[in-house]
Every structure is written in C-alpha cells, then in structure tokens.
Design a protein around this nucleic acid. Structure first.
Length: 877
RNA sequence: GCGCGGUUAGCUCAGCGGUAGAGCGCCUCUCUUACACAGAGGAUGCCACAGGUUCAAAUCCUGUACCGCGCACCA
C-alpha cells in the first residue's frame, strides 16, 4: 500500500541507528573484541578461577561446513557462560593438519610423492599439479613435510577468519598445529614415556591392514559395511576316508586353511576331532579341532580357519599356535607360495602348485572367482553359490575390505587395562550422561591393542632407531630410543648416539624406524599439548586436567577413548572433568549432511544470507547429543530475534529518555514502587535464577527457549503496558517504570549474550557499557536475583493486567479494528483477589488498551477459581 | 543378538505425574511513540500401540511395533 506522506511521523531525534545491519555490525565487533583482548587467558589468575577447554582441533583439509559451525558454536555458548561467571577462560584452538587427508591433498596440489629414502633438498620449490601419476616429483620426507606445513598454514588462516566471524571467543594466541614442532615433540615424548612405563611394545603380528593405503590401521578406524557375497559349499576330504562340506564366503583363502573346527558338542563332527581334513585343490592336511567359536546352527556347522579371514581366525591361530600360511600380501594380491614346502603342506604338491600358479598375483576378489571355477572343475563344489548379505570390515577412509597381514607394529596396551579405563571413563561427567554408555560399550568390545604405527610418510615419526647386525639384519628387539632433549627428531635424517650418519643402513650400522604414528597418537594428547606438558611443567600443572571436552559422538571411541587412555597412562588422571557431546547436523531427509546430497551451502554463504547470530541461535536451540535437522527457517527465527532485540532495546531506551525523566538522577532499585513493575521484576528474578542453574547443568537450549518466551512477553505485554507511563507519567511512576525497564533490558542482554554475542554487544554499547563501566556484555556478570533483592512483587498483578489486555486485542482483531481503536465500555467479572490485582495496574491497562476510563466497570463478586470474564465494547466507526 | 536414544499439530521440536505447548507453515486482520525484516487474533492433536501403577499418566512401570545410532556376530 502507498504510504500517505502526510501521515509520515516526524523524524525522531534518536541517538540509535535506524536499522540493524548485522553484515556491518558483526565484523566491526569482531575487530573490537580483538583490539580489546577480550578473550585472552590470564595466566596470573589461580586455577580455581579458570575454565579450561580442550577444543577439538578441526581437520584442516578444505572447507569448514555448517556441521562444524553447529558444534563449535555450542561449545562457545558454554564458554561464554563461564566467562560471565567471572571465570578466566583458557580456550585454545588446534589445527589437525596431520595424517592422510593432508597427505593426499598436498600430493595432488603440488604433484609430489614422498620418498623417505631421498635426501632433503634445501630451497625446494614445487612445480604444481601433474596430470599423470608418472610425472609426480619424488621428494624427501622433510621436503614433503614442509609443503604440508605451507599448505595447512594457508588453510588455517581461512579457518581462523571464519571462526572469528562466527564469534568464537577463542584466545587466538593459544593455537597449535598437530604437525608443528611442539606437537611432534609432545607425541614423541609421550611415546618415550609410555615405553618407559611399559605401556608400549612392538610386535610382528597379524595386523588390520588396508591394501589401498598399504598401512596398518587401528580397530577404532574400521567400520562395517554391508556387502553381498555368496556362500560356497566346499567338499573337504578326511584323511583315512570320509568327507564333509564347509560353507564359506571366502573360498580364495582355501590355500591358507590351517585348521577345520566344529563345536565341541556337535555330535555330527565329534568323531572327526583329532583326524586330519584334506583340503580340495591343494590336498593340504589340516587338523580337525573342537572350538566353541563354531556355531552348529551356521552354515554346515563346520568351518575352516585361515590365515587370516577375520579376528576370530587370528585368535584361534594364536591360541593353538598353528602355522601361518599368509596368502594376502600388503598390496591385496595373493603372494607366491610353494606347496610341499615347510609351510604349505600338501599330499600332492605338484597338483597344488599347478592350481596355485593360477592364483598367485591375483587380487583377493579375482582369486575368489578363479578358485570357485577350479573347485567346480574338480567337483568339490556342492550345488550353486547361495547369495548372502554380510558385514565386511573396511578402513573408514578406504574402499577395499581390510585384511589381516602380519607386520611389525607398535602397540599401546589396552586389553589388559580395560577395567582401569572404564573406571576413568566413569570419573568424567558426560553430557548427556547416556553418552557414557557408548564409551563403556566400546571399551568392553575392544579385541586388539591400539596399533599406533602407520606405514605412511606424513606424520610424527617414532623417535627410534634399530641396530643393523653384521649380516645386515635389523635388530628390532634392540630399539635405540632418542633422548628426550633431542625431540622432536626424525630418525630418517637424524642419527642415533654413538653412530655416524654414513653408517645408516649398513651392516654394523643403524636404521631409523620407517613408520609414523597414528594421527590419534597425537590427537589423544590435545589437553597435554595445550597445557604444554612437554616443556612447561608449571603451566601443565595449572591447565591439566581440563574442565571441558566438547566433541561429537562418533569419535567417542577414538578421540575421547584415546585421550582418556593417555591421560591415565601418563598422569594417572582424567584428561577433563566434563565431556559435552554434540549431535550431528542431518539433512531434512534425516541422512547425515554431505556434499553428495547436494547440500553445498557453505558457512560463508549463510553469513551473507543470514548472520552469525542467527546461525548461533540455531545451534543454541539444539540439545547436546541430539542430531539436528538443517533448517534454514530456524535461522530466520534467529534473525528475527536479533532484529527484535535491536528494536525493542532502541524503543526501551527511547522511552526512558522521555520528558518525565529529563534531568533526573540515576535510577536505583528503590525507584521501583509500582505494583505492576514489581510484579515484572519478580518474574525476571525467577528467570535469572533458573537460567543460571540450567546453564550450569548443560541445559542451555532449554534455557534459551524460555528466555526467548519471556523476552517476547516483555515486548508484547509489559513494555506495551508501561511505555506511556515511562515516557510521560508522573515523576515517581515514570521512574518506577524506567528503573524496571533499564534493569530488565540489561538482564535480557546478558541472558542472550552467550547465544547472540553480536546484537547483545551492540546494544550493550549504547548505554550500559558507559553506565556500568563494563565495556563488554561478555565480561558482565551473569544476572542474579540478588541484584533486585530490595524489590519484591506479586506476579498476579501482571497476569491480571495481561489477561484484560489480551481480551481487548482479541475483540479488536475480531472486529477488524486497529489496536488503537477506542474502547468505550469495558467490564471485568472476576473474584476479589483478581480484582485487587487488576486495580493495582488499572491505569496502565486502560491506557494501553485505549479504554475510556468512564466506561470501565469491575464486578468482583465472582469466584477467583474461575477465569475472569472480560466484556469489551468498541467505539462506533 | 545386546545396548542407547526417539515416536507429541502439516513440518521442526519443547514439555516428562495435575486443564495438551512453542516456532515455522496456514487463515483473518492491523501502519500502533521501536519493529511490515513487524504486530494482533485464529484454526490445527486418540501425545505410536497394548496393558499396569495412581484420586490423576504424554509424563512412572511392563511389553509390542516402527525410526535413528552404537556394539557384537558376520563360516
């Protein structure tokens, strides 16, 4: 509709901005906070006044997404509350630039491959991406590492800028990078300490192995994936006569069969125990043994044990001390094998070798097809393969099923320490508390020690060398450990004590441990990295254990578990007192948010469309631990709340500057005399008490909800009721309203500050900063009822007033009249108590409702148990 | 198979012994000393199902179903 120019209000002489423009205001406030050193940790204050956060270091590989914003904001909200409790905040930020993601990124970006055997090239300049794999430049580990550091530094700046823009109140002086010297030193020192304490050992053993990345992986990095496979019924012979059928999904492992087992009580197979089975195709004679592992109900009830199909095979092999016929090589192909030799038994070596010749060199999957064909030819396959769905173990970042491959690896002892680790987990307060169950279940289900060595290049090397004996064999049993004061070092370029560099790799010389550590071996130390356990004991004593570990639930089994483990092993302590577990952001169809689902909105895009406050509002609304739907309509609600805060604050402050208050002295609680104002104060006092309690209990999302409701009630009802009186009432009545408004607005700004740090800070700066000599709302004290100890009231006054006001509005809406339309008659039927309450606020009610005083009547003969009845008559047109 | 969450308005969720709630969306209306990026008002529910405890159950207990997740099994 066209506006009638003659109805335009005269321009208000307002000291406040006309419109709220978050895109301009928010970045300016970021700058102000940085200049004011608002979030700096103060090392001079005692531990008991300090709140220490063990921030999750985000993986630096590409882009932050909206899920990051969600969980990091949730942490920041908790931190901001603690800051307003007067705590000295230690809130660091780490960068996880270690491990495979960075390695792959740098390879592609610069067209390089790492070859640890090469010497370091000073002043090396990369030449850029390559089309062909064969064009990739091969460079030394140190050069490769330098490229990684170069690239991650660029990414880290981008991340930091975005985090600042979202208002994370991190102390940006407290940063670390997991590939930096300090973290390498800490990781290596951790290794030495655990070695000394006997928690670490190396062993040549079957290891979970990813054939694509050609590295060992830990149990925690594996995941099950559904795959379709086939049961193949394979006929086995029995030495001395007889046969039976085994159902297997991995016939390619037939050549690696070392035993056949059935349940000890299974009558069908009892007579066979002690005899030898003869495998088809290879004629290997293997023992038939009883094992509780075999399930009579499954397959044919009798199964083969191979080296190695799964963890059960490994355990059985280990327990029975059976021979190892390792078939799968590190690249996932079948290795050469000689039947009739010491390892690969066969009653007919020539035939076995002829068969195996067709298999050697094939990938496991190809070998499977080939074996099945050969079995069929040999008449050893019973019936057709039967399709089945099975769960197959994968490395979480890999595309090929994991195999068990024997290799020398470093392990941290977990299995023997389960009871202690469960106990440590119980000492942590988990939020929500049921998340402890996940920890418990994971620890109970562990079946391997923690394998910490990886056959990769980019990562923290082990500070270990081995002597090479006169024959040129590496003596793994005699590791030479580095001295702590030399850390960090790289055994590939540094030299062990007592040796000369030119002795490297020679008989009588030495060789560096070729492996790097699992990235979690470093990540598990984050609270000790930021406390500087490795080089500043005093600081460490002060900052460890931390107060809060925020993290997502899917890494309870890795990050949380490993951190608890290391804190216990190193310091006999929990790493932190509280673990706040955030949920995931899920797409509207309830799947996990991912790029493949077409949700490629970046946080930067969202900042343009909405604002930091509005996204923070969305994150703040979600309960800890609970997955949350990505829903832009919630951003809009957050946006609206920020705008409302802006406008309501502006209006409130304008009312307080009306003619009634001109030149009046500063307001105090003693000014609050009107019953309606006191009723409102009463309500706000209850609100502040509840909010502090709920926030401390990690229930901030619930608190945001009711604070928001109260704020809307403030705008729609209380403010509407008192605005006239505040602006132009009698001096005492105006002072009462203004004092209430001033305190109330200050309370709301503080209650919202952790969630909406920008708009609250902006408004705070208009009047409170100077009046209270507290430049930032984020350093202001959390509101408390004690601030209004001198004021008490009866909330029924507020309720009575609100009810009448709502009835008047309802009538006007029904009659399609504007809110300002005059009311000529108003009658209220209620009980004596209701009447008494209403009378105390009557002036305000009549004024706010535009009611003709002469037309008002009150019938107080009714019952106080019944709802009051309000009859409204509007003026004629 | 075991465990943990969940199932409430069209959607997203809060409530967790005392008259079913919010926001979004929808409908109607309204420029009012801030806010039309707004406000006022309205419609909308066998609180998954079945039993039990209780004066009283969405809420507590016991089962069942379904959804999500974790763990284990995976010949």
């Amino acid at each position: 509709m066209e506006k009638d120019a003659s109805l335009e209000k005269p321009a208000e002489k307002s000291p406040f901005p006309a419109n709220y423009l978050p895109a301009a205001v928010e970045p300016a406030l970021c700058e102000k906070w940085e200049q004011g050193k608002l979030y700096h940790y103060d090392p001079s204050r005692p531990r008991k006044d300090t709140f220490v956060v063990d921030t999750p270091p985000p993986t630096v590989s590409g882009e932050l997404h909206v899920g990051h914003v969600f969980s990091y904001v949730q942490t920041d909200i908790l931190v901001r509350f603690q800051r307003m409790q007067g705590k000295n905040i230690f809130y660091p930020m780490g960068w996880d630039d270690n491990g495979l993601p960075t390695e792959r990124r740098v390879q592609n970006l610069f067209g390089v491959r790492c070859d640890p055997a090469l010497p370091y090239t000073p002043d090396y300049k990369p030449t850029g991406p390559k089309k062909d794999l064969k064009d990739y430049e091969h460079i030394s580990r140190r050069n490769f590492l330098e490229l990684c550091e170069l690239q991650t530094a660029v990414d880290e700046q981008k991340y930091e800028a975005l985090w600042r823009r979202f208002g994370l109140s991190v102390d940006w002086r407290q940063t670390y990078s997991t590939v930096g010297a300090h973290c390498r030193k800490t990781s290596q020192l951790s290794f030495l300490d655990l070695f000394e304490k006997g928690h670490v050992y190396s062993a040549e053993a079957p290891t979970l192995w990813d054939t694509t990345f050609k590295t060992a992986v830990a149990q925690a990095e594996t995941e099950d994936r559904e795959a379709s496979g086939f049961f193949h019924d394979v006929k086995f012979g029995v030495e001395g006569g007889g046969e039976f059928v085994i159902s297997t999904t991995r016939p390619e492992l037939l050549a690696a069969c070392i035993a056949v087992v059935a349940h000890p009580d299974d009558e069908r197979f009892k007579p066979l125990f002690g005899k030898k089975a003869v495998t088809p195709l290879f004629s290997a004679r293997v023992p038939i043994m009883p094992s509780y592992h075999a399930n009579p109900e499954k397959g044919t009830g009798i199964m083969m044990i191979c080296t190695f199909g799964d963890i059960a095979d490994v355990e059985f092999w280990r327990k029975e001390k059976l021979p190892m016929r390792q078939l799968i090589g590190r690249d996932g192909r079948l290795v050469p094998a000689e039947f009739g030799g010491p390892l690969f038994d066969s009653a007919d070596p020539a035939a076995a070798n002829a068969v195996y010749a067709q298999l050697a060199g094939l990938y496991a999957k190809q070998a499977r097809t080939r074996v099945v064909a050969l079995l069929k030819e040999a008449g050893a396959l019973v019936g057709d393969p039967k399709p089945t769905q099975q769960a197959v173990k994968f490395y979480e970042k890999g595309d090929m099923p994991l195999e068990f491959v024997p290799a020398r690896q470093w392990y941290i002892k977990i299995l023997g320490n389960k009871p202690q680790l469960l106990e440590q987990g119980k000492k942590v307060a988990w939020h929500p508390d049921y998340m402890y169950k996940r920890y418990e279940q994971w620890v109970e289900g562990l079946n391997q020690d923690w394998c910490i060595s990886r056959q990769r290049y980019f990562g923290v090397p082990f500070p270990v060398w081995y002597p090479v004996d006169a024959e040129g064999n590496t003596e793994f049993s005699k590791p030479i450990l580095a001295a702590p004061e030399r850390l960090p070092l790289d055994p590939a370029t540094d030299c062990p004590p007592g040796y000369k560099p030119e002795q490297r790799g020679l008989p009588g010389g030495f060789i560096g441990d070729p492996d790097v550590m699992d990235t979690w071996a470093t990540s598990s130390l984050t609270p000790m990295i930021s406390s500087r356990w490795a080089d500043d004991k005093a600081r460490h004593e002060k900052l460890f254990p931390a107060d809060l570990r925020p993290q997502a639930h899917e890494i309870i089994r890795t990050w949380a578990f490993y951190t608890i483990t290391k804190a216990w092993m190193h310091e006999n302590s929990v790493p932190w007192h509280n673990a706040a577990i955030s949920g995931w952001v899920v797409s509207p169809d309830k799947g996990k948010m991912s790029k493949s689902k077409g949700k490629t909105v970046t946080p930067d895009d969202l900042l343009v469309t909405y604002s930091a406050d509005s996204l923070r509002y969305w994150a703040g609304k979600a309960k800890l631990g609970q997955d949350t739907v990505y829903d832009e309509s919630v951003f809009k609600v957050g946006m609206r709340l920020a705008t409302k805060l802006f406008n309501a604050s502006k209006f409130t402050l304008m009312q307080m500057n009306g003619p009634a208050m001109a030149g009046a002295p500063a307001l105090t609680p003693a000014d609050i005399t009107e019953p309606l104002d006191r009723a409102w104060v009463e309500r706000m006092k209850a609100l502040t008490e509840a909010s502090g309690r709920d926030f401390a209990n990690y229930e901030s999302s619930a608190m945001l909800l009711y604070v928001e409701t109260a704020f809307w009630d403030f705008c729609d009802n209380y403010l509407e009721l008192v605005k006239n009186r505040a602006y132009s009432g009698t001096p005492a009545a105006a002072r009462s309203a203004c004092a209430t408004l001033e305190w109330t607005l200050g309370v709301f700004l503080r209650l919202f500050a952790p969630f909406l740090p920008f708009i609250t800070e902006e408004v705070w700066g208009w009047s409170y900063a100077a009046a209270l000599k507290q430049p930032s709302v984020h350093k202001a004290a959390w509101p408390a009822a004690a601030e209004m100890a001198a004021v008490s009231g009866d909330e029924r006054v507020l309720d009575a007033a609100r009810k009448v006001l709502v009835a008047i509005r309802t009538k006007k809406a029904a009659e399609k009249r504007s809110v300002k339309w005059p009311v000529v008659k108003l009658n209220v039927d209620c009980g004596p108590k209701g009447a008494a309450s209403l009378k105390l606020a009557l002036e305000d009610v009549l004024l706010a409702g535009c009611v003709d005083k002469a037309g008002f009547s009150l019938n107080e003969a009714g019952s106080d148990d019944a709802e009051p009845v309000v009859a409204v008559e509007l003026g004629a047109v």
